[in-house]
Design a protein around this nucleic acid. Structure first.
Length: 480
DNA sequence: AAAAAAC
């Protein structure tokens, strides 16, 4: 196990890449590599297994797809008849939209080569996918469920796969995906090059990943789990009833052109989207209860700027590349701290600036403490002063009335701009240390973790919640 | 406390 030294900024054309790939990179407008690309591409070209950790929005997709295409061009597998066109590279992603996006990137970099790629995911007709697979593709990009369908239908054979990539690898290795993932991997040759990429890797997942890699090299360009420094992060202590008004006011005060609003549940997201729509904001919803057609339409309309707000579950938290997105709102604090890092990573991409606002209610204290530990940064909880802070029943009435132009407009509250101490001592309670505080211990990880011992071996231990809530001050809800 | 991923 070796780590590598930081490389100086370098141009793509200094790499030993086929002219066809260099031309595609140039066509894309890229000249110099990002740090993760500069570090990872040479290692992937050597044929080594890689675990790559880099901040959101720093070009991980290119960091694996360009060198993989290069290897496929240069290292023909002699045991395979070229006429059979077996799948040689497999890329797995945790959501359909992300798989689609990765496939777009692969196609872009492969466009001057003979290498063909196809993406398969659920929610859409299998027939076109089947036809493409049967015609033969070298690169297959997929979500797990639909891929297993195609395997069982014998639409594709994976016993010649030479390269495997797990995009958002920590998600692919988590409990919800692991059974499907293991089944897929069981169809692949043991001798292959495996690449794992994500912005977040917990120590547990790093250990688990060892059993899927051979003599890997860790490539990281920053401490993993780190948020982009170009994102301004704000946390506001609010009441549930005020959340929508707070978001609307921030949008107005800061003249925010477009934003994603994340919620924790599909139903909540659907309702919230309707509410913003009633407020006159052009809104689209994105969650797993919508048809795939609707999902793609929502995302597309948002990317084209035809809607102002995309209200989404964590289906949109990871990987999606939306150019110049100015802001992300967490209407709900995410259940997993890792998802906080991914959600706010939709803004501030490629060095741009961005705003990430998280709305915090009293019941979220533990979740916020988790985030604070993960990103290793003190979180200041600000109070928020609504412009029209009249009694609630009247505010409700005014919000429901169609003519809203006559609403009194006050200058931006200074509380919007400057962090202030929490108004509520509840939020100043210390939090419990958690397993996230363990040092990465990458060097020791391999020796310490022989093989995966079953799922329970990496499930995070439950933390002591009571201390966070003032020693049981808060009455426990009956259903929990 | 949820979401995601197959039909």
């Amino acid at each position: 196990m070796a780590d590598i030294e930081p490389a100086p900024p370098a141009r793509f054309d200094t790499l030993p890449l086929d002219a066809k790939l260099l031309r595609a990179v140039a066509d894309s407008g890229y000249l110099t590599m990002t740090p993760i690309q500069a570090k990872a591409i040479p290692i992937v070209l050597q044929g080594r297994d890689v675990m790559g950790a880099a901040q959101t929005g720093t070009g991980k997709t290119a960091a694996f797809s360009i060198p993989l295409l290069q290897r496929m061009l240069k290292h023909e597998n002699p045991s395979v008849s070229p006429a059979r066109h077996p799948v040689r590279a497999l890329v797995l992603a945790p959501t359909r939209e992300l798989a689609d996006q990765v496939a777009d990137n692969v196609k872009k970099y492969a466009k001057h080569t003979q290498l063909r790629s196809v993406v398969v995911f659920g929610g859409v007709d299998m027939k076109p996918q089947t036809a493409a697979l049967k015609a033969g593709v070298e690169v297959l990009i997929a979500t797990p469920g639909r891929l297993l369908d195609h395997i069982e239908a014998k639409n594709c054979v994976l016993n010649q796969v030479e390269y495997v990539v797990l995009d958002e690898a920590d998600r692919m290795l988590d409990i919800g995906f692991l059974p499907d993932l293991q089944r897929i991997l069981s169809f692949l040759p043991k001798a292959r090059q495996t690449l794992l990429f994500s912005a977040t890797f917990s120590p547990e997942i790093k250990r688990l990943a060892q059993s899927y890699l051979q003599d890997p090299i860790l490539v990281e360009t920053a401490r993993p789990n780190q948020t982009a420094s170009t994102v301004e992060q704000r946390f506001y202590g609010v009441d549930d009833d005020d959340k929508r008004a707070v978001i609307r006011q921030i949008l107005k005060d800061r003249a925010i052109r477009q934003a994603i609003v994340f919620g924790n549940s599909k139903l909540g997201v659907a309702r919230l989207a309707r509410s913003f729509e009633r407020d006159g904001l052009r809104t689209a919803a994105l969650h797993g209860d919508k048809s795939q057609d609707e999902r793609l339409k929502s995302l597309d309309a948002f990317k084209r700027g035809e809607v102002d707000l995309l209200v989404a579950t964590d289906v949109a938290a990871r990987g999606l590349d939306i150019a110049d997105l100015p802001a992300v709102f967490n209407f709900d604090v995410p259940f997993n701290a890792e998802d906080y890092v991914h959600r706010i990573g939709r803004t501030g991409r490629a060095g741009a600036s961005g705003l990430a606002v998280t709305l915090v209610t009293k019941s979220d204290a533990r979740l916020v403490a988790d985030i604070e530990k993960l990103i290793k940064r003190k979180i200041e909880l600000d109070s928020f002063e609504l412009d029209n802070d009249r009694p609630r029943f009247e505010r409700r009435r005014r919000e429901e009335s169609p003519e809203r132009e006559d609403r009194p407009q006050r200058a931006t509250s200074p509380a919007l701009r400057a962090p202030v101490a929490s108004a509520d001592p509840f939020f100043d309670k210390p939090y419990e240390a958690s397993s996230r505080d363990e040092p990465p211990a990458w060097e020791k990880a391999k020796a310490a973790a022989p093989a995966a011992k079953g799922l329970s071996s990496y499930i995070k231990p439950k933390k002591q919640v009571a201390a966070l809530f003032g020693g049981g001050k808060k009455p426990a809800p009956a259903e929990s």
